[in-house]
Design a protein around this nucleic acid. Structure first.
Lengths: 246, 246
DNA sequence: TCTAGTTATCTAGACCAATAGACATCTGGA
DNA sequence: TCCAGATGTCTATTGGTCTAGATAACTAGA
């Protein structure tokens, strides 16, 4: 009945994966909200023009992911359909932005290293040739689910203890505050979309075929000095970004 | 040598597709810029731990897409590595934002229809129950390459001729101007990432496994009245979004 | 001109995704 | 209690992806 329900063979994406994505889109669009149930497997199989087993594989993936749940004899129902929205604005802070949408926000520093920053990072942070950069890797969770995996760069000269302070305070904002930066501003953010790398997938606990949003941003202090360059990978099926232009 | 070079089997994404994505990332990151050449197939096969034929399939897809080109006996070289950047700002206009990055910007109205708007659209545009919406579908090109596929909604009462005017002027801004809206403002934009539907893929001339960015935005006139609700699908391998907070 | 290195093409087989059909098991309503 | 309708499981088969190896064709430099 709908052109969307066509499986593209030989596209490098298996049929069950394409169907899982289509079902996921329908759920997020609220298509099955009257009943809270996904149509029966036989109906979906006919609609997508595939075998019932293929539909079962698709549903199995969404059950695994936590979006659907199945009961034998009864049917397949929607378990979770909210998507977090991460606000990107001049003064937005990570946990503040998500606080209202989840019961618990957490972050873990999974690594840090002082080293020569890549050229683009060094340029953005205005590091001189001898100056080292400090790279901190952070995974953030909302209600125990990993939503983002960030690699943040700072000047190792100005913020030598950043990694320890972030880990201790569990907040970049508070870590900055302790080092004399009471306020900071998001200067620009560039957003790209692509499939997750194996490394990102493992940190975010998502499959290799999952889509991620890659947000690259630069923060400055109040005198326009860049203090943080970060590249944050968001799991696109759990979170969307919101730009408020006001 | 690198954790990224691991193929995830049974993920629903074929090996050659995962490798194509990895090569594409490397090209965009500038990894092969000294020579402008991609490493030989045998080297890549060993690096990814797959057969040479699998690497060939991956490269074939990137050649088809226009990123790489191959010459027998010589090697595989990079043909194109720029990515467009679409600015999202309070006053950003579509073609203006891309004008400096491409020689030619074009748009085509591929359909329009007056009908009852979906609930969320009607709410955003403050349409009353009887008021019809006008849906206009637009594909935009930069240098003959499709970059976005937009579905825009307007009030059919206030802007009955919008589709014709957009098609005629080849610009939403000028179509608004002709109907008395000299200026308008982007209120908010929400960005999600996912795989393309079959319909989107065909309009953007991309494969079914391609990632798209879905930007949903609301524009208002100068007295804060919402005049346009649009959902724009960007081909993520051709364009990124940029948000400047100034 | 020769040769090392690279892409192009072919064949054959292993493995996995998808199809097809049958039947079991469970749920909820008549 | 029965039955229609739903998910769960099993077997067999088909077809496509990936592997493996060999060889051809081409390029660039020695």
């Amino acid at each position: 009945m709908n052109e969307n329900y066509v499986i593209d063979r030989h596209s490098g994406i298996s049929a069950w994966k394409q169907i899982a994505d289509a079902i996921s889109r329908s759920v997020l669009a609220g298509d099955f909200d009257e009943t809270g149930m996904v149509p029966p497997e036989t109906v979906l199989a006919q609609r997508f023009g595939v075998n019932r087993h293929t539909v079962r594989s698709a549903i199995a993936a969404l059950v695994e992911e936590g979006m659907l749940s199945r009961v034998q004899g009864r049917g397949t129902m929607i378990k979770r359909r909210e998507k977090l929205v991460f606000p990107i604005a001049r003064r937005a802070r990570f946990s503040e932005g998500l606080a209202k949408q989840a019961n618990e926000i957490a972050m873990t520093v999974i690594g840090s290293e002082q080293s020569v920053a890549p050229k683009d990072v060094a340029h953005a942070l205005r590091l001189s040739d001898e100056e080292l950069g400090l790279r901190v890797q952070i995974v953030s969770f909302a209600d125990q689910q990993a939503v983002s995996y960030a690699t943040a760069w700072f000047s190792a000269t100005r913020f030598p203890d950043m990694a320890t302070l972030i880990a201790h305070h569990r907040s970049v904002t508070r870590a900055f505050a302790e080092q004399g930066v009471a306020d900071y501003i998001r200067l620009s953010t560039e957003v790209a979309g692509r499939l997750a790398t194996a490394e990102e997938a493992s940190h975010l606990r998502i499959g290799a075929g999952s889509v991620v949003l890659e947000a690259t941003s630069v923060n400055t202090d109040l005198v326009q000095m860049p203090i943080q360059y970060s590249r944050t990978i968001f799991a696109a099926d759990r979170i969307a970004l919101r730009f408020d232009t006001q």
